[in-house]
Deep mutational scan, measured.
Amino acid sequence: MDETGKELVLALYDYQEKSPREVTMKKGDILTLLNSTNKDWWKVEVKITVNGKTYERQGFVPAAYVKKL
């Protein structure tokens, strides 16, 4: 869990989004888990830094590609 009590997951593999509802992740990324009720796709939040500014983006990743921490 992070400092706000949200559950975290670890990306076990790289994943490139294939639709606007998904998010890209790299092996080793730590993501915030938002919803894991679907056994195949989990909703996560990723933080992306571009030119020194951090953005948060929500989307789905394959559940088999992440592990709860």
Rank of each mutant, 00 (worst) to 15 (best):
M1G: 15
M1I: 11
M1Q: 15
M1Y: 09
M1C: 14
M1V: 15
M1E: 14
M1H: 15
M1A: 14
D2T: 10
D2P: 12
D2G: 13
D2L: 10
D2E: 14
D2V: 11
E3Y: 04
E3G: 12
E3F: 05
E3D: 13
E3R: 04
T4W: 11
T4A: 13
T4L: 13
T4G: 14
G5K: 14
G5Q: 14
G5M: 12
G5A: 14
G5I: 14
G5P: 14
K6Q: 12
K6Y: 15
K6W: 09
K6T: 12
K6F: 13
K6P: 13
K6N: 11
K6E: 09
E7I: 15
E7W: 12
E7L: 10
E7R: 12
E7F: 11
E7H: 13
E7A: 09
L8I: 08
L8S: 07
L8H: 09
L8N: 05
L8Y: 15
L8V: 08
L8K: 13
L8P: 04
V9L: 10
V9S: 02
V9G: 10
V9D: 00
L10G: 02
L10R: 09
L10V: 15
L10Y: 10
L10P: 00
L10I: 15
L10Q: 11
A11N: 01
A11D: 00
A11C: 10
A11W: 02
A11I: 02
A11M: 02
A11K: 01
L12F: 03
L12Y: 03
L12A: 03
L12S: 02
L12D: 01
L12M: 08
L12E: 03
L12I: 09
Y13H: 10
Y13Q: 13
Y13A: 10
Y13F: 13
Y13V: 11
Y13S: 08
Y13R: 14
Y13K: 14
Y13L: 09
D14M: 03
D14K: 02
D14W: 03
D14Q: 03
D14F: 03
Y15M: 01
Y15C: 02
Y15D: 00
Y15A: 01
Y15T: 01
Y15G: 01
Q16G: 06
Q16H: 13
Q16N: 14
Q16D: 14
E17A: 15
E17N: 06
E17V: 05
E17F: 06
E17W: 05
K18G: 07
K18L: 09
K18T: 13
K18F: 05
K18P: 04
K18A: 10
S19E: 07
S19M: 07
S19G: 11
S19F: 06
S19W: 05
P20R: 09
P20T: 09
P20Q: 10
P20C: 09
P20S: 11
P20Y: 08
P20G: 08
R21A: 12
R21V: 10
R21M: 13
R21T: 12
R21P: 04
R21D: 13
R21C: 12
E22T: 07
E22K: 04
E22Q: 11
E22I: 04
E22N: 04
E22V: 04
V23G: 02
V23A: 05
V23N: 02
V23E: 00
V23C: 07
V23F: 07
V23H: 02
V23S: 01
T24R: 06
T24V: 02
T24C: 06
T24E: 03
T24N: 06
T24I: 02
T24L: 02
T24Q: 04
T24G: 08
M25F: 09
M25G: 00
M25E: 00
M25K: 00
M25A: 02
M25C: 05
M25P: 00
K26I: 07
K26T: 08
K26S: 08
K26M: 09
K26Y: 11
K26L: 07
K26E: 05
K26A: 08
K27C: 06
K27D: 02
K27W: 03
K27S: 07
K27T: 06
K27N: 04
G28C: 08
G28P: 00
G28L: 02
G28H: 05
D29W: 09
D29Y: 04
D29A: 06
D29G: 03
D29L: 04
I30D: 00
I30V: 13
I30H: 04
I30P: 01
I30W: 04
I30Y: 05
L31W: 03
L31K: 00
L31A: 07
L31P: 01
L31D: 00
L31S: 02
L31F: 07
L31R: 00
T32D: 05
T32C: 08
T32P: 15
T32V: 15
T32R: 15
T32I: 14
T32A: 12
L33P: 00
L33A: 02
L33S: 01
L33H: 01
L33G: 00
L34Y: 04
L34E: 02
L34N: 02
L34W: 04
L34G: 01
L34S: 02
L34P: 00
L34D: 01
L34M: 07
L34K: 05
N35I: 06
N35L: 08
S36F: 06
S36C: 09
S36K: 07
S36R: 07
S36I: 05
T37E: 15
T37S: 13
T37Q: 13
T37W: 08
T37K: 13
T37I: 08
T37Y: 08
T37F: 09
N38G: 10
N38H: 11
N38Q: 09
N38Y: 07
N38R: 09
K39I: 11
K39H: 12
K39Q: 12
K39S: 12
K39R: 11
D40E: 12
D40K: 14
D40C: 11
D40N: 14
D40V: 14
D40H: 15
W41V: 03
W41K: 02
W41Y: 07
W41C: 05
W41H: 03
W41N: 02
W41I: 03
W41D: 01
W42E: 01
W42M: 03
W42C: 04
W42H: 02
W42Q: 00
W42F: 06
K43E: 14
K43R: 10
K43I: 14
K43S: 07
K43L: 15
K43Q: 13
K43M: 15
V44W: 00
V44M: 01
V44T: 01
V44F: 00
V44G: 00
V44C: 04
V44H: 00
E45S: 15
E45P: 00
E45N: 06
E45R: 09
E45V: 13
E45H: 06
E45W: 06
V46K: 15
V46L: 12
V46N: 11
K47T: 14
K47D: 08
K47V: 13
K47P: 13
I48C: 10
I48S: 07
I48N: 07
I48G: 06
I48D: 07
I48V: 14
T49N: 11
T49Q: 12
T49C: 11
T49V: 15
T49Y: 12
V50T: 10
V50Q: 10
V50Y: 12
N51L: 11
N51G: 13
N51D: 15
N51P: 06
N51Y: 07
N51W: 07
G52L: 07
G52Y: 06
G52T: 06
G52R: 05
G52A: 06
G52E: 07
G52I: 03
G52Q: 07
G52K: 06
G52D: 10
G52P: 02
K53W: 13
K53F: 14
K53R: 11
K53I: 15
K53M: 14
K53D: 12
T54Q: 11
T54C: 10
T54S: 12
T54Y: 09
T54V: 14
T54P: 10
Y55D: 06
Y55N: 07
Y55L: 12
Y55C: 10
Y55G: 09
Y55F: 14
Y55S: 09
E56V: 15
E56H: 15
E56W: 15
E56L: 15
E56P: 14
R57A: 05
R57S: 05
R57L: 05
R57F: 04
Q58E: 09
Q58N: 08
Q58P: 05
Q58V: 10
Q58A: 11
Q58H: 09
Q58T: 10
Q58Y: 07
Q58M: 08
G59S: 01
G59W: 02
G59Y: 02
G59M: 04
G59A: 03
G59R: 02
G59K: 01
F60A: 02
F60M: 09
F60K: 02
F60Q: 03
F60H: 05
F60N: 04
F60W: 15
V61W: 00
V61N: 00
V61S: 00
V61Y: 00
V61I: 08
P62F: 02
P62Q: 02
P62E: 02
P62V: 01
P62D: 01
P62T: 01
A63D: 01
A63Q: 06
A63L: 01
A64M: 12
A64S: 13
A64Y: 08
A64F: 08
A64K: 15
A64T: 12
A64N: 14
A64W: 08
Y65K: 06
Y65M: 12
Y65F: 11
Y65S: 08
Y65A: 10
Y65C: 08
Y65D: 02
Y65Q: 05
Y65T: 06
V66N: 00
V66H: 00
V66G: 01
V66F: 05
V66S: 01
V66T: 04
K67W: 08
K67D: 06
K67F: 08
K67Y: 08
K67S: 09
K67I: 14
K68D: 04
K68A: 07
K68H: 08
K68E: 05
K68W: 05
K68T: 07
K68M: 09
K68C: 08
L69S: 03
L69D: 03
L69A: 04
L69G: 02
L69F: 09
L69N: 03
L69P: 03
